[in-house]
Each structure stands twice: as C-alpha cells, then as structure tokens.
Design a protein around this nucleic acid. Structure first.
Lengths: 155, 155
DNA sequence: AAATAATAGTTTGATTATCAAACTATTTAT
DNA sequence: ATAAATAGTTTGATAATCAAACTATTATTT
C-alpha cells in the first residue's frame, strides 16, 4: 500500500518535471522547423500571432490583444511587422470605421496550415498506439487542466 | 468505420488546439500566483530560471545558458538581477577559478518549492480520478513527445 | 443639432530583454 | 615560457514591451 503511494508520487513528479521542460523545446523546434521552410522570416512569437489570427478570423485588434494578453501598442507593432512581411492584412470595418478587423493573407494561411500540420503530427506521435479509451482520457486530462486554470484565474 | 475515423480526427484536433493555448495560460497564472505571494518581484522568466537552477544544482553558467538556450551575456544579466533580489548566489569554483557554479539561496529555495508545489497541484488536478494504468499512459504520451522532439531536433 | 464622452487603434518615450562580439581572467597545451 | 583555449562579463546595438498621450470615429447628452 505504501509502495503504491510512493510510486504514484514518483509518477506525478515525473509528469510534472517533464511538462515543465517540454513546452520550451516545442516552441524552439516549431521556430526552427518553420525557418527551414519557405517562411524563413518568422519568429516563434510571430507564428503564435499568425496562429491566433487564423483561429479567430476577422477579430478586432483589441480582441486579439486581449486573447494574447498583449498591450494594444505592442500588438500594433507586431501587426506592422507581419503586414510588412505579407502574412496579415488590416481590414477597416465599414460599419464602424474606428475598428480594424484582422485576417491572414493567402501567404499567412499557408503558414497557418503548415504550423497546424506540425502540431497535428506532434499529437499523432504523442498518442501513437493509443486506443479510443486512452484518447478519451487524454481529452479528460486536458479538460481538467482547463478547469484548474479557470478556477485559479477566477479566484 | 468512417464515422470512427472522423471521430479520431476530431479528437486529435481537439487535443492539438487545447495544447496550443493551455501553456500560455499556465505561464501567466504561474506568474500571477507567485506575485500574490511573498515573491512579488519575480517575473515568469525569472521563475523559470530559478526553477532551472534549483533543478540543476551548482551547474556552471555556461551549462545553464545551454539548457535554457540563452546567450551567456543574456544569462549574466538575468543572474545579476536574481542575485540582487537575493534568490541566487554565484560560487567561484576553487578547482578552476574561471568557473562560476550557480545555486539558490534559502529564499530561492523557498520560491522553488512554492513553484514546484503549484505544478504538482496542477498535475494532480489534471489526473484527478485516473487509475494506475491511465497514469502509465500519460507517462507514455510524454515519453512519445520527448522522442518526437529528439527526432526532429537531430534531423 | 452641437457639445461632450466614449471607444479603437496608433504613436511616443521609457524600460527591459536579447544577442554577438570584444574583453578579462584563468587554465591548458606547446 | 609562450600561445591557445575556456569561462564569464561587458559593451553596443537591436527588438519587445508597456503605459500614457494622441487621433479619428461613433455614441450620448443636453
């Protein structure tokens, strides 16, 4: 009984330690993979921004700033760079001309899909050999993390 | 059969999307939780550095720079800040006086443990209600990711 | 209808993070 | 003993970020 409890503790520590380091490595690899492709002028942060704009099509600048927890000024600077490089476009809203809606250009969409494909490949490798029940558990684990984040945030 | 394949695809997409956003939120929450505590002068990046020094006790400056993929100059600057705030200490190596070994102060160790406890709580919530077999699967998934990272990196 | 307030995004000025290259001190190799 | 190599710091330049001031536009008040 005690041995089992120690084993669980060791498993938890293993998982905790692994999680802390994996993400950094993934970010770094994402950037280096993307720079080997035709999108050599993109940093990890810019990739993240392109991903967000692709996922939330035609959201306003303020909404995207809130999603990414960046100040509006910082986002403006980042958008200038991505617009200059041809990945995103600013669309003035005709109903309310104060508002700018953000969208990807066709080049931006290509980058978005390449990035998404990389993530999909990562997930496939991660779940290699897993059955339906195992995948359900993984989903549950992620939902649990989201709950935890929600709880801590709202406190 | 086709419906099942579509379901699996949807599950993969769900997991992929969830993973992308969760980490950013965790980083942000970690910082905000730590700033609510007695460690108000610590940023997320500094927390990461304290964690690394705590995990790899008395490693040299160059080794820590390599682990974190920071230039030596950048690390020197970060270390100056953390030393000034009292979280880390530089220990001149007496065998080779060019080398500096890094360690946490007692204040640094308190911060390290608080941070580690937070991660443990996160993992516990994540695996809430999971049995031994499920936890084994989770470990396998993380090992798979590490393999994937290794493969891509070495290519 | 005119004046005022509110809102969306940009610009500005300051601060901080980062890097590569030059530099200093020390150790190893010739 | 001298030259080469190594560990860490300093320097100078560049990029990322924020908060606050600013501009243009829309909504509200009177």
């Amino acid at each position: 009984m005690n041995a089992t409890s120690d084993e669980i503790k060791a498993d938890y520590n293993f998982i905790s330690d692994a999680l802390i380091d994996i993400y950094d490595q993934i970010m770094r690899i994402e950037e280096s993979e993307i720079r080997k492709s035709r999108f050599k002028d993109i940093t990890a942060k810019e990739l993240h921004l392109v991903h967000t704009i692709g996922l939330h099509d035609r959201k306003t600048t303020s909404e995207v700033a809130r999603i990414l927890r960046l100040s509006k000024g910082t986002l403006t600077a980042n958008l200038n760079n991505l617009e200059r490089k041809g990945y995103i476009t600013r669309i003035t809203n005709l109903q309310d001309r104060r508002i700018i809606n953000l969208a990807l250009t066709s080049k931006g969409r290509l980058l978005y899909r390449a990035h998404y494909a990389f993530h999909r490949k990562l997930v496939e490798q991660c779940l290699k050999g897993f059955g339906g029940a195992d995948i359900k558990k993984m989903k549950q684990a992620l939902l649990n993390v989201e709950d935890f984040i929600g709880e801590v945030s709202s406190k």
